[in-house]
Structure formats: structure tokens, C-alpha cells
Amino acid sequence: MRERHSTRHRRRTREFEAFVAGAGGRLLHAATLLTAEPVDANPRARRLLTSALAETYARWHRLRGEDPYDRTRQELAARFARAAWRRHRPAVPGLPRPAAETGLLARLTPQERLILVLRLYEGVAEEQTAATVGLPVDRVRAICTRAVTAMRSTPPAPPAPAAPAPEVAT
């Protein structure tokens, strides 16, 4: 009995490791977009993905034909939404504020980022996105349109000032 359980556990672990090897990079990029952190410095995104993957691993034996990528993406979105709600509450005097978000989608609200990432980066249908975030389809469509417009209309960062020309000794 114990040997059979051990064999199942090893097989489950190998299957999960193969899943993470194949999908981990894309899921990390999605998490990085959600948290609006720079790609090379994304500790919140890594923590978010780690907790979503831990939940997927805990439920791995109960997936029974369910897509593990879809399940992990849903968990990632739910965890981001909960964390964003806590992070964007009014500041409490005396507590440190979170570090500034400087990533690609930093100019968007967390809700806009979540919908934009699900719809455009992940290719999730409007109806499924609406179900994931708990909003009507029309509202998801409006938020996505507003987010795309904001990303297109925001002017690029101003160019860095030119370095002064070296002086030539005469």
C-alpha cells in the first residue's frame, strides 16, 4: 500500500514539474504584467505565481481532465485581485506605502490590468473573463476598451537629456 502511494506521489510530482517547466515562464510573465513590476525585478509577481502554483499542486490529483494552465491562471487572477484590493485601500497613517509600480502596465488600475492581461495577453474570452472577475460582460468590455485607449494615448516617456559635448582643449 505504501509503495503504491509513493509511486503515485512521484508520478504526480513529475507531471506537475513538467507542467511548470512548460507553462511557468508564460505564467510568470502574466503575473509580472499584473503586478506592474519591471521584468528583471518582480518579487511580488514571483510570490503571486508561487502561491498560485502551490494551490494547483495541492489540487493536482483532483483536476481530472481540467486544464492545469487554466486552473493556475484563474488562481493567479483571484490572488492578484485579492492582493490588489488590500494594497489599494486608503493608506493607514504610520504604515509604509508599497513601492511604486514601474512596469509596462503601471499606469492602469489593478482592475484594468487584470482584464487587459486576461483578454489580450492570455486570450480569454469576454464571457470567461467576466466570470473570473465577477463583472457583467458589458462592464468587462468597457474596462478593456478604456485600458487599451489609455495604453495607446499615453505619450511615451520623454527622451533622456543629451550628454554635454566634451570640451576640446585648444
Score class of each variant (00 low, 15 high):
residue 61 H to K: 14
residue 82 R to H: 08
residue 122 E to S: 07
residue 90 P to C: 03
residue 147 A to V: 04
residue 136 P to E: 09
residue 92 V to G: 06
residue 156 P to L: 02
residue 44 R to W: 09
residue 136 P to W: 10
residue 144 C to N: 14
residue 97 R to V: 13
residue 146 R to Y: 02
residue 1 M to T: 12
residue 55 E to Q: 05
residue 145 T to K: 14
residue 23 A to F: 15
residue 7 T to G: 07
residue 94 G to K: 00
residue 142 A to C: 05
residue 63 L to Q: 07
residue 13 T to S: 10
residue 139 R to E: 15
residue 155 P to T: 10
residue 70 D to T: 15
residue 67 D to V: 08
residue 27 L to K: 06
residue 127 E to T: 09
residue 133 V to N: 03
residue 67 D to M: 10
residue 91 A to Y: 05
residue 144 C to G: 14
residue 74 Q to M: 10
residue 146 R to F: 05
residue 33 L to D: 04
residue 4 R to T: 06
residue 94 G to P: 00
residue 13 T to Y: 11
residue 91 A to M: 06
residue 3 E to R: 07
residue 62 R to V: 09
residue 10 R to Q: 12
residue 17 E to V: 07
residue 50 T to R: 14
residue 69 Y to I: 13
residue 100 A to C: 05
residue 51 S to R: 12
residue 139 R to Q: 14
residue 119 R to I: 10
residue 158 P to W: 05
residue 70 D to F: 15
residue 89 R to H: 06
residue 149 T to Y: 05
residue 156 P to Y: 00
residue 138 D to W: 14
residue 168 V to G: 12
residue 54 A to I: 01
residue 87 R to S: 11
residue 13 T to Q: 15
residue 29 H to K: 15
residue 169 A to F: 04
residue 122 E to F: 13
residue 14 R to I: 08
residue 103 G to R: 06
residue 18 A to V: 09
residue 55 E to T: 03
residue 108 L to E: 00
residue 139 R to I: 15
residue 105 L to G: 00
residue 111 Q to H: 02
residue 72 T to P: 02
residue 152 R to V: 11
residue 131 A to L: 10
residue 158 P to A: 12
residue 160 A to E: 02
residue 58 A to Q: 10
residue 52 A to V: 05
residue 37 E to W: 05
residue 121 Y to H: 15
residue 60 W to C: 00
residue 33 L to G: 06
residue 156 P to I: 10
residue 160 A to I: 06
residue 117 V to G: 11
residue 153 S to E: 11
residue 31 A to L: 14
residue 141 R to H: 07
residue 18 A to F: 08
residue 61 H to T: 15
residue 143 I to A: 01
residue 41 A to N: 14
residue 44 R to F: 10
residue 86 R to H: 01
residue 69 Y to H: 08
residue 59 R to Y: 13
residue 74 Q to L: 13
residue 115 I to S: 02
residue 27 L to Y: 08
residue 39 V to M: 12
residue 59 R to C: 14
residue 126 E to T: 15
residue 36 A to E: 06
residue 118 L to V: 08
residue 34 L to P: 03
residue 33 L to Y: 08
residue 154 T to I: 08
residue 27 L to I: 13
residue 34 L to E: 03
residue 20 V to A: 04
residue 49 L to S: 00
residue 61 H to S: 15
residue 18 A to E: 11
residue 1 M to Q: 13
residue 127 E to I: 07
residue 7 T to A: 13
residue 9 H to D: 12
residue 81 A to P: 00
residue 154 T to K: 06
residue 123 G to I: 00
residue 30 A to L: 14
residue 41 A to M: 07
residue 7 T to H: 11
residue 52 A to C: 02
residue 103 G to W: 01
residue 142 A to P: 04
residue 23 A to D: 13
residue 18 A to T: 02
residue 42 N to A: 15
